[in-house]
Amino acid sequence: MLGKTAGGLFWMFRYLERSENTARLIETGLRIGMTRSVGTHDEWQSVLRTAAVEKLYRDRHPTLETGKAIDFLLRDPANPSSVMSAISTARQNARLVRTAITREVWGAVNDTYLILQQALKNPVSTRNLNEVLDTIRQQSALVRGATHGTMLRSDRFDFCRLGTFLERADNTARILDVKYYVLLPSVGQIGSNLDNVQWETILRSVAGQRSYRWVNQGETTPIGIANFLIFDGRMPRSLTYSVRKIDANMAYLEEAYGVRHASHDMSAQLMERLETETIDSVFDYGLHEFICEFLNDIAGLGRQIERDYRFLE
């Protein structure tokens, strides 16, 4: 496979994942805004920070306003992580790798683009926002379904999966990082239930509120949430789950090509750390430091994969 094609698949799926994550963040912000009794715009600041676009937003808008934040996250072309930008970039990459994806996958991505382009042509009113977010969710499911149902399980698929899970690991770690102070036991909430709004922000951002309750029987503690998002291998957006998938796909590539690269060692190290650490050791070490290192490692792994598989000249 061409290195360029591998890179195109990798980034196509990173952007698809990102578009979904951004949509979920908007939903979270909206939900919090509606259920909160006092009026501040804190939730949007934390949403923008989680999406790593806070500075970009501030450059363009002097004040933090719900409508502006939503529009910025949903459709602003100046925001590379906005839902529309991410879908456009994903589609451009899909065009680039058109020969490496099935007709169904291309069709699903192209449809998504065409539908959203129509839906996001003008600013979306709060009244219609849920409908638009629903559409995004449905379309993401369609793309995922087409990918799983029709793509050959070859190196092509491995690069798609690497993109998906690197982006997801990055996203979940970012949510943890932005909210780490909420989860810190030192803030003085040891043993107490978290503020409803805070835990909901976190769990909604990863579509995990139900799952968390199933797993923890409703007990919402900082340590419980951190453990769930970092170590629970059953939770499809946790760090452990994502890294396990990355590691597995790296192994498939090693098997297919018969070559082990530096990136294999890096992903193995990441996996090993998640397998040996516990939530207690992480809190002892420092949650913030742990997350920062993880984000760095994930970024480093992405760069190494790019080099090892010759995405670029």
Binding site: K4, G7, G8, W11, R14, Y15, R18, A51, A52, P80, S81, T89, Q92, N93, R95, L96, D170, R174, L295, N296, I298, A299, G302, R303, F311, L312
Partner: peptide
């Protein structure tokens, strides 16, 4: 004609 993306982590 490269359409790779930006890496927020980077």
């Amino acid at each position: 004609g490269f359409f790779y993306g930006t890496d927020p982590a980077r």
